[in-house]
Write a protein that binds this DNA or RNA. Structure first.
Lengths: 342, 342
DNA sequence: TAAACCTTTTAGATTTGTTTAATTGTTTGA
DNA sequence: TCAAACAATTAAACAAATCTAAAAGGTTTA
């Protein structure tokens, strides 16, 4: 490696000062056009690489934005991330990504690292149990935070997520309208606002339709395909003989359908299944999955924009913004067949 | 936000110099134990945040490692990334992630950004058509590169990937041993070394078994579920009436099986299908997918270690390291049924 | 008691780029 | 014609840490 090319290397080569070179490379109107062109040419010729760390020492804008979610391998988050990436790319921000796997410690660690690097802002889907102080740690040190997918109590920063109660109510009502009454709810947890909201949406829809809510029909669990697959055993052995399942998300639903198929029953005919999120693969599952679109792309796009706005001094987006989910009806749900024998 | 706490804030509060504070916080033996404890206490009390940019200006180690792959939403890369993350976490390196979607420009952009941030190193699955000069750009500026999943001509940096020819030969031989002779190859491209190797492995296995290789049985395409799903139509309409398919990866295979099921045939019985990668979901697909394990976790772990070694001055890992794939036989392949009617 | 020798602390230079105030030379307006 | 205005450039301060060489303070040795 030849020796490092810096501003002063260019300045010396041209008999100018570093101030002029610095200004020229940033297209300042203070520098004469001819001079600027000479400088830029020389910079390319020498293979100059701008040192952002040195620059940000004075400017206190690093161009770095942090994003933490539960797990980037989960397509739900992956779809949000893609939207965020698209939006941030446009504004020449680099983003640093991390999983927290619902570990509050790992998440705080990330926030601290980001502060050390001088991160301009952070977008996070907070880990279960995130204390308000962790969000304040970021905000108090001049790093605005945006929340996605989940809220944190006592925190009023811009928050974007789907309307969970409304969404599960949509799915539950759809099944009720097909004649189902013994409807299970599979996957997820009650330890998050999301979990409680989704359960409330499901339970209220049942009550409104005059159907009794039975806690035996609630089968909580991780939010993965594997978990849905394993839940099939419990589901099929359930003494209440449910005929339909509202699943926490598409992954659980697809896993459950695989499990049902493995047991020799036909998902979508013998058992109706709804997902949640409308991932890309919902449409190509067999049978194609009836699900609830949860606005991932909107969440990602809005969150990124809100952050960029904040960085430019606006704070209009503070508070909670709910995205209205929409029903996507496909072949995994069908009218209750009274003779099906289950 | 209160005013920024820096080394000098702590120094003044305790009547010491910044040099002492700096040394103390880094556990230098030059500082007396009592002094160090007082300093650390004060740092916590004031909520001091270490400024890595300022530090790295002198030390020229930023603690940042870049990772670029085709698409993090692809579970193949996601599994590699998880292994990298696990390994890097241990050494307190932050990693910056990006997709390049096989755009050489987007990839070079990332490398440049990383150089500007003073990245310590980069792990990349190079975009199709990556010129040697882009890898050299990184290396020449003191940022070592490690390649995963694909090679770049003329480049000798540590490279970790599966033995593709060997892997597809495994899958093809498995199908041949089940009695299949009309075996299609679905998905992927011939524009990468990986693509050519995989095709060669498939073609050579056929030749060795005395089966003619027919280019009509090669159906290239994107490496996604969607693409596999769509390929089912072409596959089933193929005039050579293939009875089995070697798929580019598990995603294509699962998509293809879904497409076959949608057409009313039973994948695994009427048509045998093999995948590639052995993703988590291969085991829970219906039918469970016969596939080739491609060592994602090994690739990720080795790559991360090789980079850390390089940063510590070793260069032992230069050159290509092939990981031997292994067959995972499940239910998506079965003996050729001569009466099946196709 | 001075010299030698620790241990601990610090002044001040250094890293690279940004920014402000000053400088130099030229043009304009009264 | 001369002061004011203007354009282009630069010296020097600055950002927050690290690092080296030297100083300060205390103890031991000859």
């Amino acid at each position: 490696m030849a020796q490092k090319i810096k501003l002063s290397t260019i300045a010396e080569a041209l008999g100018l000062s570093t101030a002029t070179v610095s200004l020229a490379l940033r297209d300042s109107p203070l520098v004469a056009d001819v001079t600027r062109d000479r400088i830029k040419e020389k910079a390319i010729e020498l293979g100059y690489i701008y040192n952002r760390r040195a620059a940000s020492l004075r400017t206190s804008r690093s161009g770095i934005i942090g994003v933490v979610v539960h797990d980037i391998m989960n397509p739900f988050y992956a779809e949000i991330l893609k939207a965020i990436e698209t939006e941030l790319d446009r504004s020449r921000q680099t983003f640093i990504l991390s999983n927290h796997y619902d570990s509050v410690d790992k998440q705080r660690n990330f926030i601290e690292t980001l502060l050390q690097l001088g991160g301009d802002g952070v977008i996070m889907s907070p880990a279960i149990g995130t204390p308000a102080s962790d969000i304040r740690l970021a905000e108090d040190n001049g790093m605005p935070a945006i929340l996605i997918a989940r809220s944190v109590p006592e925190i009023d920063v811009p928050t974007f997520r789907g309307d969970d109660a409304y969404g599960t109510a949509l799915a539950t009502n759809h099944l009720i309208s097909l004649g189902h009454t013994r409807i299970a709810m599979i996957g997820g947890t009650d330890h998050t606002s999301t979990g409680r909201d989704r359960y409330a949406g499901y339970a209220n829809a049942l009550k409104k339709a005059g159907i009794e809510v039975d806690s035996q029909l609630r089968i909580p669990g991780p939010r993965t395909k594997q978990s849905g697959f394993e839940a099939a055993v419990n589901f099929l052995a359930n003494p209440l003989k449910p005929t339909a399942a509202v699943c926490w998300n598409d992954l659980v639903a697809i896993g459950l359908m695989n499990g049902i198929a493995r047991a020799g029953l036909v998902p979508g005919k013998d058992i109706s299944v709804t997902g949640y999120d409308d991932l890309e693969e919902a449409a190509i599952a067999t049978p194609a999955l009836t699900t609830v679109w949860n606005g991932q792309s909107e969440v990602g796009r809005f969150a990124a924009r809100a952050l960029l706005d904040k960085l430019n001094g606006s704070s209009e987006a503070d508070g909670l913004h709910l995205i209205k989910p929409e029903m996507r009806i496909r072949q995994s749900t069908s009218p209750l067949n009274p003779g099906a024998g289950r």
